[in-house]
Design a protein around this nucleic acid. Structure first.
Lengths: 128, 128
DNA sequence: GTTATCTATTACCTTCTGGTAACTAATTAC
DNA sequence: GTAATTAGTTACCAGAAGGTAATAGATAAC
């Protein structure tokens, strides 16, 4: 358990009021926002986390509503950021397998935190 | 600890291959993406989490780079979604205080997970 | 030779996001 | 009366995001 956004003791004034560690967290959050930007990346990562491995068409069918152009582009981003591994299989016609890297799998904690909060949020807001 | 994206045992074919619980998580993630959309909301929530309370101008100065128009609009969103409470103070000139609701504060877990992952990610990618 | 499968790509278009700069309204201080 | 402070708002605009529809290139099946 890590505590974040702690007030700095003895801080007087000026500039950032945040501790070094706190600023690191903010950079960390920004990094996540960058690599997981857009409408579809969480869905894609979740789908791959669940199935371990999927081909392009399987992914497209699994994630309802996504256009091939968009899926292709999102997968490229994820691959570039070392979250997804792309493997071309020597079949006829060729198929391509996508799977999460270890780094990609480690996103599980974030997705879990978001999932849990979202469910709580929905209950909390609906009961008002 | 909750485990997500579990394979459904005995599933044969068709439609969604995900369990009910798993689908709930996906909706939860989507809800978080909705209420925390855009470039600034995590920054704003983090700033308020750290300081407990801030006035409009304080927030604007604290979050470097944000335009008043954008800050105003983001705060409205957050307020509408019950994450931020807005209080007009009867001072001259009037000041307005913003603070997180309990729901808003409970975002801490997500921000923490993202912060931790982001820091790890940065280390992992840089060392390559 | 036509059609199907798989993995995409291309051109085009619309909507959303967010930035700039200037301005409002109320009040106080000089 | 002029300037400053607070909390925004308004008009304008550029670029990004993402959707649609058609198409490519390789191969195999019929």
């Amino acid at each position: 358990m890590v505590t974040i956004f702690v007030k700095r003791e003895g801080m007087t004034k000026k500039k950032s009021l945040l501790t070094e560690g706190c600023l690191q967290y903010i950079v960390g959050v920004k990094d996540v926002q960058d690599v997981m930007s857009g409408k579809w990346k969480y869905r894609i990562v979740a789908a791959l986390y669940y199935t371990e491995k999927m081909r392009f068409m399987e992914l497209k069918n699994h994630i309802s509503g996504i256009a091939p152009k968009v899926l292709s582009s999102e997968l490229k981003d994820l691959e570039m950021n070392h979250l997804v591994k792309r493997t071309v299989c020597d079949t006829k016609p060729i198929t391509v397998e996508y799977e999460l890297t270890e780094l990609g799998k480690s996103l599980n904690g974030i997705i879990e935190a978001m999932g849990v909060w979202g469910i709580k949020y929905r209950k909390s807001v609906l009961k008002k």
